[in-house]
Computed example of a mutant assay.
Amino acid sequence: MFNGSRLGGTLIVVLAALVPTCFAGWLVWQSLNGSGEPSEKTSAAPARSGEGNGEDAGDGEKRDGKPGGKSGGNGRHKEPPESEEPLTGMTVVLDPGHNPGNSEHVDKISRRVDIGTAKKECDTTGTATNSGYPEAKFTLDLARRARTALEARGARVKLTHEGDVPYGPCVDERARKGNEAKADAVVSLHADGAPSGSRGFHVILPASVREGEADTRRITAPSRRLGGDLRDAFREATGERPANYLGDGEGLDTRGDLGGLNLSKVPKVFLECGNMRDARDASRLTSAKWRTKAADGITRGIEAFLTANR
């Protein structure tokens, strides 16, 4: 039979014994951690990005101590992957060959300028396809596409002209623009005007010359490396073969009669992207889709050269 009176008395005795003990424990806890929130030494601040692997990136700073960019929601700076902008800090000059307005200023572009080894025309009109698509229009479009791709990789890109001047610039001024920019690489873009049946692309390298204002001795070796990287990347991106009408079929040609190369003080090459007078080459040069591939090849070639020579 249940005896409620006896049980109630037992509970009272137990509670009377426990209350002093609990009260003493509460006093000890309060003295150690008064407010009930985490103490300063045990702060729950988010771990910094380097923690756990022996590195410390710092709050809102990159590992090199420079101020960080935008922070994420946790207050930590998030650095982009190293491969995202591999050309940061590098300067590239693209030289779109000729100018759409040259044909209207023949008297001005025909004047002679000093290229060190000789005197040559300020510029020429360039060539065109049989259907009338001009080289100058092709090179300007290609340069703009390549600029976009290079800038996406972090490069600082300058064009020798935007088609916004009446004619030129002259070949000596084109070289000067690359020199003044202290470019890490310069690529002059062209398309050839060889007889039909002559197909393919090639890269023109500077010969070693020293005469007058021309002195390429310091740039011939790096220019050759630039040319080789550009040739390989362009071939891979476009599927085009090196020119079948000059050199040894390797796609590299060395010349000492071009003012844009002779007067350069920085690594520089010319890229002849194909033959506008050949119907099969012309069908590619006039294709916007193909020019996107070509711009990718140019970008990858320049990137290969610059990242190998950092």
Rank of each mutant, 00 (worst) to 15 (best):
D184G: 01
P169C: 09
A221R: 02
L87S: 07
G54D: 06
L246E: 09
G126K: 03
R48V: 09
R280I: 05
H98G: 03
S83N: 11
G259P: 05
D296A: 14
L150D: 02
L11N: 14
A47T: 11
I12Y: 03
C22G: 11
P81L: 15
G101V: 05
R218M: 10
G72T: 08
P20L: 00
K177H: 09
D64V: 05
L263A: 07
P100C: 07
G200Y: 04
T117C: 08
V14I: 14
G126T: 00
K182Y: 01
G25N: 13
P166K: 09
N33I: 06
K182A: 12
R147M: 11
E104W: 01
W290C: 07
K66T: 15
K78L: 13
R147A: 10
R210G: 13
R111G: 12
R147K: 15
L306E: 04
E61C: 10
G4D: 13
D64T: 04
W29R: 14
T129F: 00
D95M: 07
A221G: 12
D253H: 13
A304W: 01
L7N: 12
A279V: 08
G256P: 03
G52K: 09
H161N: 11
L306S: 02
H190Q: 12
M1H: 12
E40S: 13
D95T: 01
G68S: 00
A279F: 05
A304R: 14
A17K: 06
S188F: 07
P81D: 15
V28N: 11
N130L: 06
V14H: 11
H98V: 03
P96C: 07
G193I: 00
M1S: 14
D253I: 11
D215V: 06
K158P: 06
G256I: 02
G132N: 00
V186P: 03
P166N: 05
R231N: 05
F270C: 00
R145Y: 02
R225N: 10
E51N: 11
P195V: 04
D172H: 08
V165A: 05
W290Q: 05
D114F: 01
L15S: 11
S198P: 09
V171S: 07
R111E: 15
K293G: 08
R241A: 15
A136V: 06
D229T: 10
D253W: 12
R76H: 15
H190V: 05
C122S: 07
D184Y: 01
N275R: 04
G251S: 07
N262M: 07
E303M: 08
D229C: 06
C122R: 01
P206I: 02
